[in-house]
């Protein structure tokens, strides 16, 4: 910045007529404003361009719709098959949310048990790890042999995939309570329950919510994968079954439509868990607090 520029600014401020900040600050403020708009506009533009390009590639190369349908055809199929597809979506959503609910209860419950009892942790954590590291596609066929009910089998698969991040994160959170606050609890003769309620659970909340964001997506993946393995159709079939079915019939547009629904569901789940996390933490936690 040159000397003349500096004097300009000083004069402007003294007369009270000019801007209140100097040229550099003004540039910074402008950059901030542009970034705020760009945060929404850029992804929209790129996404639209990608879809347009997809459409053009299909048209220009005259690709038949049973190889790659254009975006327009996918949308119209989504509309035409809406009754079938949305019924399947409801089934997948039901399994996903039931599995997530059980994963939250089981994950948090086990985490609390682990922090309350060393023996419980020693006894059960190997099982938790084994369940986590074994690929669900390889356990699922067994589950469907032993479990009579299709719904329970699907739930079990989705739960196995979803519960571990909640268990691992919540356990870590419960253990990372501030050590001085733990001393304070000892000094005030807090009971085990009070310590859990007033110190450990609030300390674990940000960790739990981080786990929930991962588990939400995993529950959906678990539900879809389990259904692939379960295979058999009939009434009450989810989106994965629709994809398989459409594949056998070479109804590729419907495959894409079902895929689109799954992807959208995943995005909505992630956005919802992120929102819950933000609302719960915005008052006090570093991750959610707005800073100047």
């Amino acid at each position: 910045m040159s000397i003349t520029e500096n004097t300009d600014v000083v004069v402007a401020n003294e007369t009270g007529a000019g801007p209140l900040f100097d040229a550099e600050e003004e540039r910074y403020a402008r950059a901030q404003k542009i970034e705020a708009v760009a945060r929404w506009v850029v992804p929209m533009v790129v996404l639209s361009l990608t879809i347009w390009l997809w459409d053009r590639v299909v048209v220009w190369n005259e690709i038949p719709h049973y190889v790659l349908p254009g975006p327009g055809l996918v949308l119209s199929t989504l509309f035409e098959d809406r009754v079938t597809l949305f019924q399947s979506l409801l089934v997948t959503l039901q399994i996903t949310f039931m599995a997530l609910t059980v994963a939250i209860l089981g994950g948090v419950g086990l985490a609390v048990l682990f922090t309350q009892s060393k023996f419980a942790e020693m006894s059960f954590s190997p099982f938790a790890v084994i369940l986590q590291v074994t690929p669900i596609v390889s356990i699922a066929p067994l589950i469907f042999i032993y479990v009579e009910s299709r719904l329970v089998g699907l739930l079990l698969c989705a739960w196995i995939v979803a519960f571990f991040p909640i268990l691992a994160n919540t356990t870590l959170g419960l253990k990372s309570a501030d050590h001085n606050l733990r001393d304070l609890m000892n000094i005030y003769k807090a009971t085990r329950w009070q310590r859990l309620r007033f110190l450990q659970l609030p300390s674990a909340l940000p960790y739990f919510l981080g786990g929930l964001r991962i588990a939400g997506g995993l529950a959906l993946i678990g539900a879809v994968v389990a259904e692939y393995v379960a295979g058999t159709g009939g009434i009450g079939s989810g989106l994965a079954f629709r994809i398989l079915e459409a594949g056998y019939r070479l109804n590729i547009p419907r495959m894409f439509a079902a895929l689109l629904l799954i992807a959208l569901t995943g995005v909505v789940i992630f956005a919802t868990t992120s929102l819950i996390s933000h609302l719960a933490l915005r008052k006090w936690h570093e991750s959610a607090v707005k800073r100047e």
């Binding site: 501030d178 001085n180 606050l181 001393d183 304070l184 609890m185 000094i187 005030y188 003769k189 807090a190 009070q194 007033f198 110190l199 609030p202 909340l205 008052k283 006090w284 936690h285």
Partner: peptide, 28 residues
Amino acid sequence: DDLGVVFQEPTLMPWATVAQNVWLPFRL
């Protein structure tokens, strides 16, 4: 069991308001 303690760090619960923090000994 009739003590007050102040540590080198403020040792406040970040999720609780100032009044709720001061409430802690009574709450327990």
